[in-house]
């Protein structure tokens, strides 16, 4: 079964992996807002922010190439809109679109690459995101690769028979739907048999320790500092 590289990265043991999820979540949110609300001298500020993100990547002992290329999945989309803005005579907007979208994607990627999803979900639950939604999110993530693999088998089988017509593709999707539904009911019964009452109980609570507070203050202050210094100097 195919797994997401992020899953593997998030199980590291660096100092950053050990910080409380809430501190990383808040730091990432601060970074996103600081980047989103900046308007002047963007290329220069972006260098500073990129430096911070690279530092975090190295400190977390994550593969630099892997992080940079994975964050780049936003670039094709951004490039199209940047090109359109450029054609309309707004090169400033074009540059901002590319820089902001790439930096933001990197920041979110670093958050999930240093925090396992269940822990992230728990801190979102503490932030009063509806628990039902978060439980759905966890099941969704657990079964994506299972159902995707089933779809891939169906696609391979269809290709071996000479491809799908529109009608056959609809039938295939209906079968996939029915199978997913049956699988979901089986999972549901199995979980009820094991005493599942609608939410997960963590075995260990993660406490917010002094190092987490230090990290939170530093990680929130540095992006802001980059921006302030950049705007004052220029």
């Amino acid at each position: 079964m195919r797994h997401n590289a992020v899953d593997e990265w998030s199980r590291g043991s660096s100092a950053l992996h050990r910080r409380a999820p809430a501190s990383k979540l808040i730091a990432a949110a601060v970074f996103l807002v600081v980047v989103a609300t900046a308007h002047h001298h963007l290329p220069l500020l972006a260098c500073g922010w990129l430096g911070l993100l690279l530092w975090v990547t190295l400190a977390a002992r994550l593969p630099l190439g892997g992080i940079l290329s994975r964050g780049a999945v936003v670039l094709p989309f951004s490039a199209v809109f940047a090109l359109l803005s450029w054609m309309e005579g707004a090169p400033g907007i074009a540059v901002a679109l590319i820089l902001k979208s790439y930096l933001s994607a990197l920041a979110v990627l670093l958050l999930v690459a240093t925090t396992p999803l269940p822990e992230l979900v728990r801190s979102l639950e503490a932030a009063r995101v509806p628990r039902f939604l978060l439980t759905v999110v966890q099941f969704l993530y657990r079964y994506i690769f299972v159902v995707v693999e089933e779809a891939a088998h169906m696609r391979t089988a269809a290709a071996a028979r000479g491809g799908l017509t529109f009608r056959a593709a609809a039938d295939a999707l209906a079968v996939l739907f029915a199978r997913s539904f049956a699988r979901a009911e089986a999972i549901h019964r199995a979980m009820i048999a094991r005493g599942f009452d609608g939410h997960f109980r963590p075995l260990a609570r993660r406490r917010f320790a002094p190092p987490d507070a230090v990290f939170l203050v530093l990680a929130s202050a540095l992006p802001l500092l980059v921006r302030t210094v950049g705007e004052v100097l220029l």
């Binding site: 539904f181 009452d197 939410h199």
Partner: peptide
């Protein structure tokens, strides 16, 4: 609430 697995799948 316990039907969350269904929506997830």
């Amino acid at each position: 609430e316990s039907k969350a697995p269904l929506l997830g799948v």
